[in-house]
Design a protein around this nucleic acid. Structure first.
Lengths: 157, 157
DNA sequence: CCCAAAAGCATCGTGTACGATATAATCGTG
DNA sequence: CACGATTATATCGTACACGATGCTTTTGGG
């Protein structure tokens, strides 16, 4: 897109760059995992359960930063494959407890290897990457706090 | 997530930060446009047609960086609302020509105002934002060139 | 002790993204 | 002129994301 000339244009261009890079990562993972049913969100879930498991659905969704009902169907699939266990808690029957299995650990380890090999030649400068990450995290907090006015007219549907 | 300790961890964390910010932006736009049928991709399409229109579906998809068949159903909806015109080219009947309408321009102008007001208080430092954008664009080019090895085992489905 | 409020999860509907596939139209070479 | 190759778009299926809604269970105040 064209060079921005106002702060608003710059912010909108940041948004577009994030959108573009997000989809590029998506295609990267799609290509790497195309012969399996694995996806990036599934890898995130396995990783969170590896490090912090066992977790409830709401705790897991908080860690990853998505809604619980986004996580619910995905963990059902991972459980169906045997990568995780998915059990209703006896202490609090509202909760479902999730834990990675040995098979899930193997899948995750192999996925990790593939991702690392794929990223090996990206050639991104570590210092700039760290600064970009700090900035992105601050941007996320700012965007989450933002309270935009509501556009209102006859809908597009 | 925990501090990364290798280049691979850092790259994966970059990926996660992009994923998180992308969804935060998504929620921002969802909130801003919740009373209309507008979405961020629709705004991108209107913006591209405003600046470079008229465009074919394939030209438009190239400008935005998504697949043509992603664009096809979205422009159908925008045409149904009257925000754009959608006409088969007489010169080359394979092509569909797209152009923004007066109504689409109005919708876009109002959406732009809402976005700018919503972004007004983000408080992001312009210099760091510009550097982050340059980095993200380089990262996107690198990721798009990357050729990850294929993970292969019994699928998850 | 009772009951309203809150919490946790599941389902439904919709939006966008991509891969695979199909159809129609155009191009370019022999 | 014919035909294979290529281009452009459309459809189908699947994945994930969120809002809305509903059901069940737990909590806590009166």
């Amino acid at each position: 897109m064209d060079d921005p000339n106002t702060l608003a244009d710059t912010q909108f261009l940041l948004c577009f760059n994030v959108y573009s890079l997000h989809r590029s990562f998506g295609r990267f993972y799609q290509s790497a995992f195309s012969e399996t049913g694995l996806t990036y969100p599934k890898v995130l879930i396995l990783m969170a359960l590896e490090r912090h498991g066992p977790l409830s659905i709401s705790a897991l969704s908080s860690r990853i930063g998505v809604e619980p009902h986004t996580v619910s169907p995905i963990v059902k699939k991972l459980a169906g494959f045997g990568a995780i266990t998915r059990e209703r808690s006896e202490v609090d029957e509202r909760r479902v407890e999730l834990a990675i299995t040995a098979k899930g650990q193997e899948v995750l380890d192999r996925a990790r290897t593939v991702i690392e090999e794929g990223f090996a030649a990206l050639g991104l400068e570590p210092d700039r990457m760290m600064e970009a990450m700090r900035f992105l995290d601050q941007a996320r907090e700012a965007v989450e706090k933002a309270d935009p006015p509501k556009l209102s007219f006859e809908g597009l549907e």
